[in-house]
Every structure is written in C-alpha cells, then in structure tokens.
Amino acid sequence: MKTIVVGIGNPNFRDDGVGLKIVEHFEGLVDTVMLMNPDFKVLDKILGYDRAIIVDGVKSGQQPGTIVELDPLNTFKNIYASGTHNITLFEVIRVGYTLFPDEMPKEIKIIGVEVEDVETLSGECSPKVREAIPKVVEKIKSYLRIK
C-alpha cells in the first residue's frame, strides 16, 4: 500500500513543530513530507497515495501531550473558513475528495498532539509534548506495521 506521512507545523514555534519532529522518524521508511500549513499543498502531496497519515499539533483544551485521532471527514464536518489568507485542513481534504475522488488516498488518518506553547520562538518542544513524540511514532508504526 503506497503510504505517505505528512507533518505540518512551524519548526520555530516550540510545540507547533511537533508534527515535523514525528515525521522525521519515518524518513527512509515510507514517503514523508513536511509542510508549514494545511493548504492546497497537502493535496499536491497526498494525491496518488493509497494511504496518508497527517500529523499536526492540536489545540483543543486537553492536557498538553494528549494524543488525539481525528477522522478527516467526520470531525469538524462543517467547518468553514471564509475569512482571510488560509483555508483549513478539513476544507482541503473535502475539496480533494470532491475534485479528485480517484486520486485521493482511500485512507487518511489525522493524528494530533495537544500543544502547550506555540508562541515561544524555539526549535524545541515543551517537555509534555516532547514525551508524546515516541508514543505517536509507535502508534503510527503499529498502524503501518513497521517494526
């Protein structure tokens, strides 16, 4: 099954880089890509794959380091950003399935790590988020059946 792991985040804003740090563990094992934000570039990268794992930071009010899994189609089913400058990951995925149903991955899994600090300019994640990284890596490896 042709698989890609996509990390989204900013490497310079502490916990915002968590998705990127997780993806580093999959380089050489499966196809990987790092993006700074969830716009049309996500489609550019996942079209043609059977399976895509998208890893990102999440701010949902839970304990920092909490790992959450989001169904790309049924979570935030009706979120619309009509404002400025950017669109959401969920809109992008909906557009993908609307326009390119045959090229979109049959499976998309979105894994989020609850962030604590995404405002401090730093390349290091905060301790609780850092502790979550190996757990997410194991979770994805198990899902992909990678040892």
Partner: peptide
C-alpha cells in the same frame, strides 16, 4: 457582517500567521 468582512478581505490580511494548530486558522 459578511458585507463588512468583504471590506478587509481584498487586502488579504496576514497577521504573521506563523503558527497554527488544528482545527485550523481562525483569524477573526
């Protein structure tokens, strides 16, 4: 309200949107 928002959208505001977390950018 959208008719009011249409007044700033042409400028395509970028407020240094350097970080993001899911569910997505929610600027205003």
């Amino acid at each position: 309200i959208n008719l009011v928002e249409m007044a700033y959208r042409p400028y395509d505001l970028c407020f240094a949107c350097a970080t993001h977390t899911l569910p997505g950018r929610i600027p205003i």
